[in-house]
Every structure is written in C-alpha cells, then in structure tokens.
Write a protein that binds this DNA or RNA. Sequence first.
DNA 1: CTAATGCATTAGTGTAGACTAATGAATTGC
DNA 2: GCAATTCATTAGTCTACACTAATGCATTAG
Lengths: 109, 109
Amino acid sequence: MTEAAPITQIMRALADPTRRTVFERVVGAEEISVAELTRGSGVTQGAISQHLKSLKQAGLVAERAEGRNVFYRAEPEGLAPLVDWMGHYGVFWRERFADLRNLLKEIDP
Amino acid sequence: MTEAAPITQIMRALADPTRRTVFERVVGAEEISVAELTRGSGVTQGAISQHLKSLKQAGLVAERAEGRNVFYRAEPEGLAPLVDWMGHYGVFWRERFADLRNLLKEIDP
DNA sequence: CTAATGCATTAGTGTAGACTAATGAATTGC
DNA sequence: GCAATTCATTAGTCTACACTAATGCATTAG
C-alpha cells in the first residue's frame, strides 16, 4: 500500500485548475498516456509531466511504462486523507446527508 | 442561501496550512474572535484577518460584529461543492465506503 | 476626553510555483 | 543507421500569495 500523502499536499495538488483537470481526465480514462493528456490541455507536454509528478507525489495517480509511452491511472486510496479530513467535521455532512445516502445506494444497492 | 463558491476557491482556501488551521479552530469553537484566533497562531493579527477574508469569500466562514469584536463561525454549506466534487468520483468512495457508513451511523443512528 | 483594545486594510517583501523553451534519454518506425 | 515519437527534467521567467509592519477606524475602559 502506498504511503498516505499529507492532507496539505493533496489539497495543494487539487487546488490548481489545470492540474485538477489533468487528474479528472486520468480518472475518466482507464489508462491514459502523457501525449493524450497533453492534447487539448492548453499547456506544453513538459507542464503536463510536472503536474503528473505532483499528482503522483500526492498519491493521486500511478504510472505504468510501456515502450515509449507512460500510462497513468488514478489511485483510489489517494483521496482517503481528504475523506478522513472531512469526516472530522461530521456536522458538515448533515447538510449533504441525503445526497450521500443516494450515493451510497448507487455504490452498493 | 449563500452563493456556492467555485471549487477552486475552496480548494485553494483549504490548501494553505495556516489558513486551514484557522478554519479548523473556527469549526472547533461555536464562535471565536479574531484576537482569540490570533493567539497562538504564530502569525500577526493582520495575517489572520486576511485568511478570514479568504475563508469568507470561499463561503467557509461567516462573521458577526459585536462591539469592537468580530466573531467568526463555520459555514456548513461551504464545503458542499467539495463533497459534490468528490461525489463525481463515486469509484473512490467504494474504497472508503465502510468508513462512510460508520460516519453516517454516527450522524443519524 | 484620553488611552487602550479589536479589527480591517494597505504597501512592500520574499518565496513558491505554473509555465515555456530547450535538451536529452529511451523506444519505435523506416 | 537515422529520423521521429514519447516522456522527464532543467533553467529561466512571471505571477500569485503569505506575511509583516504600519496605519486608521470603531468601540470600550478609566
């Protein structure tokens, strides 16, 4: 199991819009290459690699090299510290209680 | 109801350790003054006011002036966009869904 | 009234980081 | 072998921002 990244690192990684979009695209795809992520991103390939490095250090993505491609995939446990952090403020969940119940039903009917 | 702040603003507000600590202290107290927040924060009163301004703009706290004091309190709905954002990645919740069930039980046994 | 307290705001400073351009290393195609 | 592709990394630039110090405005105390 990968070491859990500190909450600050995770928050910081997701705070930048460009980087968060990269993360969302990685989530949306089963696996996705850097070249594909660069396409239509509006930034250079180097910038994408830098964002992926941050996301990786935050424990949010993992990589798999194959030939000259490097495929990235989402790392589910990476968001755990964020969930835990929000869990500390249970009072907040009350507000979104119904939505959460629905979500859990979808996950495990 | 307050306008929901964009997810980026919320993430950015919570990404800074000092500011997140301020938020956590506001959550921990029913109401808390700026002077009290400044105490033991390690930064000046002006910095605290600036952080509170960011948190307020992110919809995470609200204020109440009384005399020469200004008391801050947490704003529950402020975290909703964050919850919603995580909700979009339902797959992630599967990993933590046992913990979530326990959390929901605590909230509404 | 005067002094002290609580807070917000401003200008200025230092640092972090988002980005580009360039380079190099590894792999694949011809 | 040679050119092209994919990616990571580096140096350099520019902007954002966390912070301090200082100031000013209300409000309360004496």
